[in-house]
């Protein structure tokens, strides 16, 4: 397992967890056909939390966060995001989706639009922001992810790491209150992982509520306030990072940690 070193000093001044509940998942189950992918998930995420979800592939961790903005539909239980329950009501779904940003493993930038257009598309069409303002916001976030000079290029002309940073900026332009990351660094070459992780750390330092499916344990140790370990569609263990890595309780967790950190 390639492991990007987190070298920088992390500013924890804004990383405060509040009492306000951001996401509440209660007794949630999901099946793909007859396959029970998520089993009785209970999870409460408070505003300002930075959660890393780890686990072997096929453990349901991606499906879990995809349920949070309804890219997947859960079949029983309850998901409440920012006080809005995810039901089959389209208005609620639209509301949740515009509050929650999502970053994908394969970036999913729109290849026919320039970087700037990728960033301004949703603000203009969903939030109805005037174009000029949307452009300004987009440039602000491009500066933040440190690639303002690429604004007029097309996604195909950028490296993988740059594309993923654009994808993060694209989500940020919608001013989300919660960010979901679905294995954001898995499709990247080793030398590009660090630049994406740095962007994510900066986001954490500003107090963003984040749920992150990743295998980057260095990131988990440095940034997360909670690590969740999933296996076979259920939450097996959750703890604060130091305890999680140094004093795992469950046998499954120990085995998993020895496999990814062992050598």
């Amino acid at each position: 397992m390639s492991e990007a070193k987190i070298e920088r000093k992390i500013d924890r001044s804004h990383m405060t967890v509040t009492d306000e509940v951001a996401i509440q998942i209660t007794a949630m189950n999901k099946w793909f056909g007859t396959f029970h992918v998520l089993r009785d998930i209970n999870l409460t995420v408070n505003r300002g939390e930075r959660i890393v979800i780890a686990g072997p592939s096929g453990s349901g961790k991606s499906t879990l966060i995809r349920c949070i903005n309804r890219l997947e539909e859960h079949q029983s239980g309850q998901i409440i995001v920012d006080g809005t329950e995810l039901t089959s009501d389209l208005k609620n779904i639209d509301k949740v989706r515009s509050e929650v940003g999502m970053v994908f493993q394969h970036f999913n930038l729109f290849p026919h639009l320039t970087i700037l257009e990728n960033l301004t598309l949703a603000p203009i069409w969903v939030r109805k922001v005037p174009k000029k303002e949307a452009d300004e916001v987009a440039m602000y976030y491009l500066e933040k992810v440190k690639i303002p000079e690429q604004a007029l290029k097309y996604p195909g002309q950028l490296s993988g790491g740059q594309q993923q940073r654009v994808a993060i900026a694209r989500s940020l332009c919608m001013k989300p209150r919660i960010m979901l990351f679905d294995e954001p660094t898995s499709a990247l070459d080793p030398e590009m992982i660090k630049e994406v992780l740095d962007t994510m750390i900066e986001l954490a330092e500003e107090g963003m509520t984040m749920i992150c499916v990743t295998h980057e344990m260095g990131f988990a140790q440095a940034v997360a306030n909670r690590v969740i370990f999933m296996d076979q569609g259920q939450i097996v263990e959750q703890n604060e990072p130091y305890e999680f890595f140094n004093n795992p309780q469950s046998e499954r967790t120990k085995l998993f940690l020895s496999q990814i950190l062992g050598h």
Binding site: N69, R70, L71, D94, R97, S98, V100, G101, M102, F104, H106, F107, N108, L109, F110, L121, A122, W125, V126, R170, S171, M174
Partner: peptide, 14 residues
């Protein structure tokens, strides 16, 4: 690719 549909959905486009 499916990702294009998902990205559009996750941005809240109808």
């Amino acid at each position: 690719p499916r990702g294009q549909y998902e990205a559009a959905d996750s941005l809240g486009l109808d």
